[in-house]
Design a protein around this nucleic acid. Structure first.
Lengths: 299, 299
DNA sequence: GGCGATGGTTGCGTAAAATGCAATAATCGC
DNA sequence: GCGATTATTGCATTTTACGCAACCATCGCC
């Protein structure tokens, strides 16, 4: 019992154009085929929808009743499918992604600019989260994919490494550490530290390392975001332990960046999305741009 | 570029049941065929709508977007077609017909009773008109068919004769004419006549004949409807010229009916509908009942 | 950690449906 | 009446859908 959708479509066209021939043209089929479609439809429903003489065509009363519904169905179908098709061809649509706040304001803008130029129609919504909240947003489906710090892999999620970002000590030119070529974690002893706190993912990594180095001190200043940490360092109230990828700040703010070694500690930034879920074309496109863009960032 | 409606339907079922196997069952096809339908649809739109692993099936983001629309389309289509089908099988639906007022209150009730018993769901609307207004109502599509007095055939309409209804003289028992076996038109001279006026179709016929008989008199009383004419005759203010089919009145009201001869004048009652237009099943059914019912009325 | 059960996919032959061409039929306008 | 226009039908052909069987991947279990 197949659905005679072609018949319905044919019916709508004939009803609107008042002629089999013209309708056939519009549908790019022969008028013969059109007749057959109408016949199938009428056979299917068991009544005549179009009263046709050899000279003209008109709706029967039942056809008149059916036309509005038929028209709506066909329109919905054609437009709906069309929308899907164009979205697949052009990557049209809205995207929602979750990202670390630090990445959002540092590396992402460039990627978003490229994306915006390539797909001027599309909108992007950023969910700026810290630490595990990015992962959570992706997991719960609030975002199509996320940019987060790589962690114990969750079975429902897939990660895709973007870059390994070493931690450095950021301080003002006049800070005692500013003259060093590098700095060991052990030597941090006695230095006033500005660290990231809150639910930051960096926090977990850094504190683990500090403890390992025998420094049980938490930072003297604990802030919630990178921009605040930099502002404090600029005031020379201490030295901030930050990911190197934040380093553009050193250029624009005149701060010094000293590599932290023994060991070099990284945070690994990765793209994350749900396993076995196909992204929307718009998301796929953004994903690709973010990936090439962020993995080519100098380290 | 055929519309993959089967794919859309399959998609909806899979999305709702969460399983290819179950969806296939519901659609009474093999699961293989179902896979193919989904594949066609996805190929058509160019993107994945269902993310399926070997163990489970879920909507992709695009699929989620598309589902509501798809569901509506499929529902509309199935229900719409189904409604047409059942209406064709059972003659379901409303009917609007135009009829002479005289027929409406005299012959039609019986036919409508039969119709109502056969199709208890259906509603019937009567447009009671006189004379040419019945024809007009049909012609303009206000009624699916009509019961009118046959006349010059209009090219857009088709008539279907029901009965020939002779005119008679109706008068009270005490009226001078009540004793006659028959009455010629010429002999009407000097009798006070009750005739139908207004836009009545009878009026035209009767007046033509009166003129032909040399009686230029219009009726002494001219009324607009048969019931009024009968009421006047009952009061013995004159004799009414009426179609014989109205004769039930003689039984219930004690009036006498005298055939009018030389010539016997008929009004021909006919069904009328638009040429080349298929009636709705409901109308077809009513048409048939009216036809058998009214043509078997005794003359 | 192999193994059966479950669930989706693919190869291929067959059946069904849609299509187009050519011929036919019916009607309109001249 | 006759040519022009419009819908329908016969028939051959192409296209599509379908089902079976084999296959592949994963889950859960012993």
């Amino acid at each position: 019992m197949k659905i005679p959708i072609d018949g319905v479509q044919a019916f709508v066209h004939v009803a609107e154009l008042g002629s089999f021939n013209r309708a056939a043209e519009h549908l790019f089929i022969t008028q013969t085929a059109l007749t057959r479609r109408i016949q199938s439809l009428e056979a299917f429903v068991g009544l005549r929808l179009l009263d046709r003489t050899t000279r003209s065509t008109a709706l029967s009363p039942m056809g008149r009743d059916f036309l509005p519904l038929a028209r709506r169905i066909v329109d919905d179908l054609v437009h709906g499918l069309d929308r899907l098709r164009t979205s697949s061809r052009l990557g049209v649509g809205d995207v929602k992604i979750a990202t670390l706040q630090s990445v959002a304001f540092r590396q992402l803008p460039l990627a978003l600019r490229r994306y915006a130029r390539k797909y001027p129609e599309n909108r992007v919504q950023l969910l700026e989260r810290s630490g595990a909240l990015v992962t959570e947003a992706v997991h719960q489906g609030q975002a199509e994919f996320g940019i987060h710090i790589q962690q114990d892999p969750h079975p429902d999620l897939v990660e895709d490494m973007l870059m390994r970002d070493p931690f450095v000590l950021v301080c003002s030119r006049s800070h005692p550490a500013a003259k060093l070529r590098k700095m060991t974690w052990a030597n941090l002893e006695g230095i006033d530290l500005i660290t990231l706190g809150g639910s930051s993912g960096n926090r977990r990594i850094v504190e683990t390392q500090l403890t390992k180095a025998g420094l049980n001190l938490r930072g003297r200043f604990v802030v919630e975001s990178t921009p605040s940490a930099i502002a404090l360092a600029r005031e020379n109230v201490g030295a901030a332990i930050l990911p190197a990828a934040m380093n553009a700040t050193t250029v624009t703010t005149g701060l010094i960046e000293v590599p932290l070694v023994e060991p070099v500690l990284y945070r690994t930034i990765a793209l994350v999305c749900r396993r076995n879920e196909t992204l929307t074309p718009a998301a796929t496109a953004l994903y690709a741009i973010v990936k090439t863009q962020l993995s080519r960032v100098r380290r």
